[in-house]
Amino acid sequence: MLLVELHNLEKSYGSVLALRKLTLEIPKGTLFGLLGPNGSGKSTTLRILCTLLEPDSGTVTVAGENVLKNPRNIRSKIGFVAQEVAIDKILTGRELLQLHGDLYHLRRNYRDKRILEMIDRLDMAEWIDRRSGTYSGGMKRRLDLAAGLLHEPELLVLDEPTVGLDIESRSKVWSLLRELHTEGTTILLSSHYLEEVDALSDQMAIIDSGKVIAQGSPSELKKELGNNRVTLKVREFSNQVEGEKVRQLILGIRGVHDVVVNTSQGFSLNFFADDSDSLSKMRSDLNEAGFGIFSLSESRPSLDDVYLKATGKTLMDAELEVSSKRDFKKEAKQSMR
């Protein structure tokens, strides 16, 4: 059963197209990871789902209800943990949770019981009655999680939940999400960390330039690529022309596919080989054509390879590319309501 259905979402900020006909379906009970570089449209998607933003076109359905028509009903079913941790510094953690409970219309004794549960579960007892202005990043994030979970939402939405967190806080967040998942909560999280999506999610989608370019379970997506991920260098410092020549050469070998010249790694060749026969064929073919082998490494395919295959660039490159184009002031204004 699908809990969330986003169909053909389009959204632009001025002349910038943030979402291009994005379609995403999230089954109930999954821990769904949304992977993509910064600026790919992850936050925009989540903000639309949480009724903070209206799409230019497209439909949003949660638990069978039209979110755009009846946002209020949906809000009580969703717990949203936003990327920017905005808390009222002058209030204590407990007071903030009480405020949240009241805004979600929890009955007072139930609210206080839930707060105690959350304090216990997220290990916040030591500092919950201190003013939140004194909290570290990890503490704030835990408080935010508690606030998002207080009203027992059917769907927990997290925007980059571990960005900027220390390792200890990160692992706390991860284990909490895993627990919630086993208990049956549907979780949607966005991340630009490959390991995070790989480690946590059972379903995922890769999003790039405002649309979904691959979807499935992390292991399925990786399996589709073949058994071996190979990185080949014919010389230590190669160039575009030579790289392209080698690409053409090995493209014809049976069992070799998805050959890409990786410009960010000294024009090395990245490809997938189905078996060892295709690799030995490649060696002899290269030898015949007069190319040497400077280095050859094999590994299991990773999510980065899935991304590379779909977009022709690594996630890191995509990240660098957008980071030079991003206007953070403008983005801050966009998220202001």
Binding site: T51, R72, R75, A82, A86, L103, S335
Partner: peptide, 11 residues
Amino acid sequence: GFLNRLLVAPL
């Protein structure tokens, strides 16, 4: 961004 907190709540 605190207002966003209020706006995602089912007021």
